[in-house]
Protein backbone atom coordinates (compact mmCIF):
# COMPACT_ATOMS: atom_id res chain seq x y z
CA UNK A 1 0.00 0.00 0.00
CA UNK A 2 1.46 3.34 -1.01
CA UNK A 3 0.54 6.52 0.81
CA UNK A 4 1.45 9.62 -1.12
CA UNK A 5 1.16 11.60 2.08
CA UNK A 6 3.65 9.48 4.00
CA UNK A 7 3.06 7.01 6.82
CA UNK A 8 -0.30 5.19 7.24
CA UNK A 9 -2.92 7.27 9.07
CA UNK A 10 -2.91 6.75 12.79
CA UNK A 11 -6.22 6.63 14.54
CA UNK A 12 -6.63 7.47 18.21
CA UNK A 13 -8.49 4.74 20.07
CA UNK A 14 -8.75 2.83 23.32
CA UNK A 15 -7.57 -0.64 24.20
CA UNK A 16 -8.53 -3.00 27.01
CA UNK A 17 -5.52 -5.15 27.83
CA UNK A 18 -7.65 -7.70 29.66
CA UNK A 19 -10.21 -8.31 26.88
CA UNK A 20 -7.85 -7.43 23.99
CA UNK A 21 -10.68 -5.21 22.74
CA UNK A 22 -10.18 -1.98 20.75
CA UNK A 23 -12.49 1.02 20.63
CA UNK A 24 -12.94 4.00 18.33
CA UNK A 25 -13.97 6.62 19.39
CA UNK A 26 -11.92 6.67 22.59
CA UNK A 27 -13.73 5.47 25.72
CA UNK A 28 -12.51 5.45 29.30
CA UNK A 29 -13.89 2.04 30.26
CA UNK A 30 -14.17 -1.25 28.40
CA UNK A 31 -17.66 -2.18 27.15
CA UNK A 32 -17.02 -5.79 28.09
CA UNK A 33 -15.34 -5.77 31.53
CA UNK A 34 -15.80 -2.15 32.76
CA UNK A 35 -12.01 -1.97 33.25
CA UNK A 36 -9.98 1.14 32.53
CA UNK A 37 -8.73 1.35 28.92
CA UNK A 38 -5.41 2.63 27.58
CA UNK A 39 -4.95 5.17 24.82
CA UNK A 40 -3.59 3.58 21.63
CA UNK A 41 -2.86 4.58 18.07
CA UNK A 42 -4.36 2.26 15.52
CA UNK A 43 -3.58 1.72 11.86
CA UNK A 44 -6.58 3.30 10.10
CA UNK A 45 -6.35 1.15 6.97
CA UNK A 46 -9.13 -1.30 6.26
CA UNK A 47 -11.97 -2.25 3.99
CA UNK A 48 -15.49 -0.96 3.46
CA UNK A 49 -18.10 -3.42 4.74
CA UNK A 50 -21.32 -1.49 4.12
CA UNK A 51 -22.39 1.97 2.98
CA UNK A 52 -25.41 4.15 2.19
CA UNK A 53 -26.32 7.50 0.71
CA UNK A 54 -28.81 9.38 2.86
CA UNK A 55 -31.02 11.74 0.87
CA UNK A 56 -33.13 12.89 3.82
CA UNK A 57 -30.58 13.94 6.45
CA UNK A 58 -31.45 15.37 9.84
CA UNK A 59 -31.59 19.11 10.43
CA UNK A 60 -28.21 20.75 9.94
CA UNK A 61 -26.89 18.37 7.24
CA UNK A 62 -26.89 18.66 3.44
CA UNK A 63 -27.92 15.75 1.19
CA UNK A 64 -26.56 13.57 -0.22
CA UNK A 65 -24.77 12.35 2.89
CA UNK A 66 -22.68 9.27 2.15
CA UNK A 67 -21.74 7.08 5.11
CA UNK A 68 -20.29 3.69 5.69
CA UNK A 69 -18.71 1.27 8.13
CA UNK A 70 -15.19 0.02 7.58
CA UNK A 71 -13.28 -2.75 9.28
CA UNK A 72 -9.68 -1.92 10.12
CA UNK A 73 -6.81 -4.22 11.00
CA UNK A 74 -7.61 -6.25 14.10
CA UNK A 75 -11.31 -6.38 13.21
CA UNK A 76 -12.42 -3.08 14.74
CA UNK A 77 -15.24 -1.39 12.85
CA UNK A 78 -15.61 2.36 12.47
CA UNK A 79 -18.63 4.34 11.30
CA UNK A 80 -17.83 7.41 9.25
CA UNK A 81 -18.68 9.71 6.40
CA UNK A 82 -17.32 8.86 2.95
CA UNK A 83 -15.01 11.84 2.40
CA UNK A 84 -16.16 12.54 -1.17
CA UNK A 85 -19.89 12.28 -1.85
CA UNK A 86 -19.28 12.17 -5.61
CA UNK A 87 -18.08 8.59 -5.21
CA UNK A 88 -21.49 7.45 -3.91
CA UNK A 89 -22.48 5.53 -7.03
CA UNK A 90 -19.22 3.65 -7.45
CA UNK A 91 -18.65 2.35 -3.90
CA UNK A 92 -18.16 -1.36 -3.44
CA UNK A 93 -18.24 -3.60 -0.40
CA UNK A 94 -14.74 -4.87 0.31
CA UNK A 95 -12.85 -2.02 -1.26
CA UNK A 96 -9.82 -0.54 0.50
CA UNK A 97 -10.35 2.56 2.64
CA UNK A 98 -8.53 4.38 5.39
CA UNK A 99 -10.00 6.31 8.30
CA UNK A 100 -9.13 9.77 9.51
CA UNK A 101 -10.59 11.73 12.41
CA UNK A 102 -11.19 15.45 12.72
CA UNK A 103 -13.01 17.14 15.61
CA UNK A 104 -14.62 13.90 16.74
CA UNK A 105 -15.88 13.03 13.25
CA UNK A 106 -14.57 10.11 11.24
CA UNK A 107 -13.98 10.12 7.49
CA UNK A 108 -13.55 7.11 5.25
CA UNK A 109 -11.20 7.76 2.32
CA UNK A 110 -11.06 5.48 -0.68
CA UNK A 111 -7.62 4.15 -1.52
CA UNK A 112 -8.26 4.31 -5.24
CA UNK A 113 -7.63 7.49 -7.19
CA UNK A 114 -5.45 10.49 -6.64
CA UNK A 115 -7.76 11.79 -3.92
CA UNK A 116 -6.21 9.25 -1.52
CA UNK A 117 -4.23 11.76 0.45
CA UNK A 118 -4.37 10.85 4.12
CA UNK A 119 -4.21 13.56 6.70
CA UNK A 120 -1.20 12.96 8.90
CA UNK A 121 -1.29 14.10 12.45
Amino acid sequence: MIFPGGAPPRLEGSFCGKCRKQFVPVRMHCSKCRGRTDLVYLDGCGKLITFTTLYVPPEGFMPPLVMGICEIKGGLRVFGEIHDYRLKDSLEIGEAVFVTEKDGKYFLHLERGAAAQPATS
Binding site: L54, P57, P58, F79, I93
Partner: peptide, 22 residues
Protein backbone atom coordinates in the same frame (compact mmCIF):
# COMPACT_ATOMS: atom_id res chain seq x y z
CA UNK B 1 -20.79 9.67 17.39
CA UNK B 2 -23.08 8.14 14.78
CA UNK B 3 -25.67 10.88 15.12
CA UNK B 4 -23.06 13.64 15.32
CA UNK B 5 -22.14 12.62 11.79
CA UNK B 6 -25.70 12.81 10.49
CA UNK B 7 -26.61 9.18 11.11
CA UNK B 8 -30.38 8.61 11.29
CA UNK B 9 -32.52 5.52 11.86
CA UNK B 10 -33.11 5.01 8.10
CA UNK B 11 -29.40 5.53 7.34
CA UNK B 12 -28.25 2.96 9.88
CA UNK B 13 -31.02 0.58 8.84
CA UNK B 14 -29.76 0.99 5.27
CA UNK B 15 -26.25 -0.01 6.38
CA UNK B 16 -27.73 -3.17 7.90
CA UNK B 17 -29.89 -3.79 4.81
CA UNK B 18 -26.95 -3.55 2.41
CA UNK B 19 -24.78 -5.79 4.58
CA UNK B 20 -27.56 -8.42 4.78
CA UNK B 21 -28.45 -8.27 1.08
CA UNK B 22 -24.83 -8.52 0.03
Amino acid sequence: QERRQGGTMPALAALVARAYMS
